[in-house]
Design a protein around this nucleic acid. Sequence first.
DNA 1: CCATAACAATCAAACCTTTGATTAGTTGTG
DNA 2: CACAACTAATCAAAGGTTTGATTGTTATGG
Lengths: 179, 179
Amino acid sequence: MTAEPAGPDELDYLSFVDYAVSEAGARLPEIDADALRLVLTLHRVTSAIVYDLESAVHRPRGLSWPGFRVLFVLWIAGPLESKRVAELSGMSRAAVSALVNTLERDGLVSRRQADHDRRAVQLSLTDTGRETIVGDYHAHNEREQAWATTLDPAERAQLVGLLEKLMAGAATAAAKRRF
Amino acid sequence: MTAEPAGPDELDYLSFVDYAVSEAGARLPEIDADALRLVLTLHRVTSAIVYDLESAVHRPRGLSWPGFRVLFVLWIAGPLESKRVAELSGMSRAAVSALVNTLERDGLVSRRQADHDRRAVQLSLTDTGRETIVGDYHAHNEREQAWATTLDPAERAQLVGLLEKLMAGAATAAAKRRF
DNA sequence: CCATAACAATCAAACCTTTGATTAGTTGTG
DNA sequence: CACAACTAATCAAAGGTTTGATTGTTATGG
């Protein structure tokens, strides 16, 4: 009464994947249903984790998810040109520029002209920015642990390995990448 | 000369993960570096795939990634109340409402009042919407295949299994979820 | 040495997202 | 039956994203 192939009325966010794979496969037999399942599952798991982290950790502390990513990159690889922040965080240069307006207004990041190239802008964390990202990242990591402990260490390593392989394949293939 | 632990100047989107894990682990020994690596890798791989699909497949055909997701849900589980679309696509009801303004303007989706509840709105694909999503999904799936073929069938199954386990753990744990 | 191409950042317009009100309709209970 | 509690959708304000144009600076080849 519950393990039946659910009809469209009993679906939820989780079971939608199975339903979509069987429906799409039945309607378009030429597609690769395994690839559909892989990408759909990957997207849903990642979205759930990001939603959890953003709403439970970052928003309550006054940061957006993109804001967190920029502060994290600056904290790890610190002071950097705007262009490098875009590369390392996976955002466009325009998005970094717009986002830094907010972070600068909030006193977390400062801009200054680079010495060697007057076109470039050097971004640094302010003292407040550094305190913010350290505290924020502690809370972030606790939540990451909560997610990660669902898997035992061997499974975690396996998952990371498979994801890295997937990513490496993309570099080889002609995937459209920002960098 | 290349496999050295890269300094901040030689980093790129891919190698940033290793650098971040070692830097964060060194600065904050109390954190769980494995969990950091897992979430960071998962997010970067997924973002790369979504960016590829959106920019190579959907935008050129006039759809945004969120627009694609809504059309896909309606195509698979078709006509649905707005609330159900939000649940199945993982968006907020407000986001669906705003997005459907665009999709309706473009003639892909139609709204009508539900019979059984005058508050509810029933969403359906128009004929154009159905043609659009079928053609679009064919192109989408070809790209999905290109990504998926990096892994052999056993690896793909393993990856999906690990992701499902991760997701199931979240339902159990107190992860903050939309649904 | 100077014109042209390349490049860094920002701007602009259009779109999507979030949270928190608001509006309208439904349901349950005394 | 009336009223309170709840629910569906939309609105509003603030923020973030994209692509493509613009502005200013640097590099290059004739």
